[in-house]
């Protein structure tokens, strides 16, 4: 169950139309390491997590990623609002425009569509938490790449905020890994899969 709150987690106020930047940051909407992939990955993994509080963390971070997805979409929307055909042709946004006009559609910067292959739900707590740690690092790298080349402060402020969240989430997933390890036998963490071999996993 989710409730909507009519505000962005971090305000997005972009004054200058810039379809080139929209083309770049849309990757964090529909790209392999984008916010939609992150949210769907965590929300899928949580059901079978053996440690209850880790499932709770996945719910909370998965929910926050939806806020981030909304921020990225707001940025793409504002960057392409009132676009003229001349701007479309000059900016390199034309390929996207042909298929979607200025509507929002989840794709990577290079045009690949959003793909459920990125969701990576493996049904093994350790494997999934390593996936999540890696996912936060990959998203951080993308934000680093964007911050290195984007000058507009209206775009940089929310990007800086989103980058910082990747590091906080990495720390939380690391702590979730420690909580999961605590419920396993440290002599051999790999003796069984706590999500599947339930007859061996006793918490």
């Amino acid at each position: 169950m989710w409730n909507y709150e009519k505000r962005l987690q971090f305000p997005v106020k972009i004054s200058k139309c810039n379809p080139k930047i929209a083309q770049q940051i849309i990757s964090q909407y529909g790209g392999p390491d984008g916010e939609m992939s992150a949210s769907m990955r965590y929300l899928a993994q949580r059901y079978t997590m053996p440690v209850k509080r880790v499932g709770g963390l996945l719910t909370d971070i998965g929910t926050e990623e939806l806020n981030h997805m909304e921020m990225i979409c707001a940025m793409v929307y504002q960057l392409t609002k009132n676009l003229t055909p001349e701007q479309v042709k000059a900016s390199g946004f034309d390929a996207y425009y042909i298929d979607h006009t200025t509507g929002l559609w989840p794709q990577a910067a290079g045009g690949l569509p959003q793909n459920a292959i990125e969701y990576q739900s493996k049904g093994d707590a350790l494997t999934d938490l390593y996936e999540d740690l890696a996912a936060e690092q990959k998203a951080r790298t993308v934000y680093d790449n964007l911050l290195r080349i984007i000058d507009d402060p209206d775009v940089r402020e929310p990007l800086k905020f989103l980058r910082a969240r990747e590091i906080v989430h990495f720390q939380r997933f690391g702590e979730a890994l420690e909580m999961t390890k605590d419920s396993l036998n440290c002599k051999n963490y790999y003796f069984f899969n706590p999500e599947f071999d339930k007859q061996i996993f006793k918490k």
Partner: peptide
Amino acid sequence: PWEGGTCVCGT
């Protein structure tokens, strides 16, 4: 909210 809303101080 994606219109920029009413929100933030100074921006």
